[in-house]
Each structure stands twice: as structure tokens, then as C-alpha cells.
Amino acid sequence: MSATTAAKKKLSVPFDYDKYLRPGKLPHIWCPGCGHGIVLKSLLRAIDKSGLTKDEICMVSGIGCSSRTPGYVDFNTLHTLHGRALAYATGVKLAKPELNVIIVTGDGDALAIGGNHFIHTCRRNIDMTILVYSNFIYGMTGGQFSPTTPVGALSNTSRYGNIEPVFDCCDLAKASGATFVARGTAYHTLELERTLLAAIKHKGTSVVEIIDECPVYYGRNNKFKSVTQMMEDIEKNGTVSVKQADKLPPEKVQGKLLRGILHQVERPEYCEGYEKLIAKAQGKG
């Protein structure tokens, strides 16, 4: 058997998601076509590749569609208040620095009500991975516009088009001091898996904005004919890989979101600094 056939053979064995899922919890509550399930699968594959055991991971979430994720996964999980996931996660990480904390949050949860927690977590550079599921709308509460709803887009609370400018999650994270900032989409699921693996391995605050689709509220309000059309228009044609962006003519990049690892630097991590401080105060440092 040649190497290529071996690789193909290996690929055709489906990934066993069940070992990371709580038995009997499926089907999940997400609507038909919702991208959150695709992102969860990419995350589970990335966790599998990272070699972490289930007990070494703590998944924290706030409130929202995306924040239902910890209910389905068999890790240490914490489902907290709206926007406050990062505050709880900071507590978890400081009490048990050996845990790998992964926060699953939505665009409204992280950038609107949890905006302050978001910028200060990035500033402190605490070693955790923040996944911001950005579907441009508040899905769970009935389709209100969120800080990522594009200008002009319709939602149940912007019937004549949204006039508020958009928060760029990645720019905000970078400016606040996050040491790993990336963007992925549910459409590019294998690329997302690689990005998430790099984010989990990174020491420091990692922020990954994940563009996915809400076919029920955002899709219907904005006249998308199908989930497929949403995925192609928003995720496939609306984004461009950061690796290709330099090679493409500027008119093909303009107005599109960049995908991939956008920013990665090394900076002292908060928990390590805190432990050094404790040692110093106890006269051991």
C-alpha cells in the first residue's frame, strides 16, 4: 500500500465524537443549519489532537445559544451568568492553574454585556482560550441586533436596517493585549480545527473569533434563501485567508474579513506572575 492510499484510508475513518460528548444529550437544541454544531466538532477534533485529557479541560460559558455548548461535552464545565463567563474563568484559572480553560461565548455575550470582562482578560494575558461565536445576532432571545450585526442588516430590533458600526472582535482583542488573535469560520472547518489547536497550545490569552451562521433569525431577516447560501456568502466569499491576502489584488481583499492567525506574541502570563508574587510575599522568591 502506497503512502497516499494509507493517508486516504486513515482519513476515511470517522472521528469518534462520542468519547467527548455526554451520553444521551443529543440532539442538541441548536436550530437546523446553525453553525455552532460544526464549530463544536472542530473544537473536539482540536482537543483530541492537543492530547489533553477530559479532566484537564474546564469549559466555561455565559448565556446564549453558543453558551449551551458545555452542556453537551464531557469536560469540567461551568455555565454562568450572561457576559460573566470570563470572570468565572479567571477565578477557575487562578484557583487551579493546571486546568486548560476554554471559554465558549457568543458575540453578544462577549462583546456587549461582557465587553469589560473581555478587554480586561485580554489585558491581563491569563492563559485561557476564548472562542467568540459570531453569528451577527442574539439568537436565544429572539433575534435582536448585536455588536457584530453589519451596518444596514435587518434584525428583529432593527427593522429598517442597523445603523450602529460593528465591533471588530479581533482588533479589539489585539488592542486590549491578547497575545493570540485568530479568526475562523464554520465553513472552513479543517482550517478552524488547526487554528483552535494553535490557540489551545498558546500560552496566554487566545481569542478566536468564529464566523458562523444563524439561519433562523439573521438568515430569514436578511433574505438568505438557504443555509448553504449563508455559508457561501458570509463565510466562504466574505472572508479571505491571511496567507493569501498579501498575494491577492487589493480589490479582492477589500471589505472582507481576514481568516487565520492574525496576531501572536509572547508576553508574561498572569498566573505565573501571580505565583511569583506569592512566593515573594512568603519570602521564598
Partner: peptide
């Protein structure tokens, strides 16, 4: 056997075995 259906299924509902 490209497995795009498995990768993009949001509901864990489809698998391709060799």
C-alpha cells in the same frame, strides 16, 4: 470518501466509514 458531509454536519448525524 471526502467526508465533507461529516465535517460540516452540525448535528453529529452523518458518518462515512470505509
Amino acid at each position: 470518501r471526502c467526508q465533507l458531509c461529516d465535517l460540516r454536519c452540525p448535528d453529529f448525524a452523518i458518518q462515512v466509514f470505509d
